[in-house]
Amino acid sequence: MPSLVEFLQSIVNGVGVGLIYGLVGIGFCVIYNASGIVNFAQGVFVMLGGMVCETLLSQLGIPLIVAVVLTIPLVAISGIVMELAIVRPMMHRGATLFAIILATLAAQIMIERITLLTFGDRPRTYHEFTTGGPLKIGDVAIGYQLFWILGCGALLVLLLWLFFTRTRTGRALRACSQNREAAQLLGIPVARMMLIAFALSAALGAIAGILVTPTQYTAYNVGTPFGVNGFIAAIIGGFGRAGGALAGGLLLGVLQALAIVALGAGFKNVAALSFLLVVLLFFPNGLFAGFGKSAKAH
């Protein structure tokens, strides 16, 4: 039986990793809303974020902030390339969504292998953004990086909310998600919106990767677990809903952390998938599908 301290510590750890899952889940939602595509290569953006940032730091010796500022657009470009090289040509040739989704899975494997051949299989990490710590509250230790993850996660959610509700491009992306034909008829360039969605989604993945790498190693193959857990987070939250994905990620992260403490590390994924099954059984459209649809019929 875990002690109270272990219980609290696992919740703290779960919140940190859960926020990362949430960010990956939001990345899934952004692309899905703009295109109807589930981008199974979402996890590689997390991996690339960590790998590119670590490479810039270790090879060029540049300050962390510069590495971060360079990494995000570089990974965003990989998202643009994926849309231009894989998704758009397939769409133009009339490929089904299922075929395109499968192609994104193939892209994930391809990018992983290219990363393996380029960077090798050595796990990599870099120092936490703020050295020192951890902060001790009683016997519960909270690493400073968790505060970075929490702060950046909250800031990103706020910025995304502002982007989607207050900017012309953000509103246009939401319009595309609800009725692509109507959006086109109003002059919205849907193809360009998809490009923006892939870039934004990749940038979100990169930020998640940059934030999480100091707390654990990154390697060519870390994208898959992040991708799978981000996908589960998005489904739990009601696929397509950014806020739902974030909440789903937090729930999933905490649940996994508790499962590790209570049942052992081997039960981490069992707990995640069992939770997913239970959610889908009782809430087939996700836990938060009803939110934001409070129609005021009169």
Binding site: R171, R174, A175, Q178, N179, E181, A182, L185, G292, K293
Partner: peptide, 12 residues
């Protein structure tokens, strides 16, 4: 064009 069925963005 205003489409048949109105083509609104219902959740906006």
């Amino acid at each position: 064009m205003v489409q048949e069925g109105r083509g609104l963005f219902p959740q906006m």
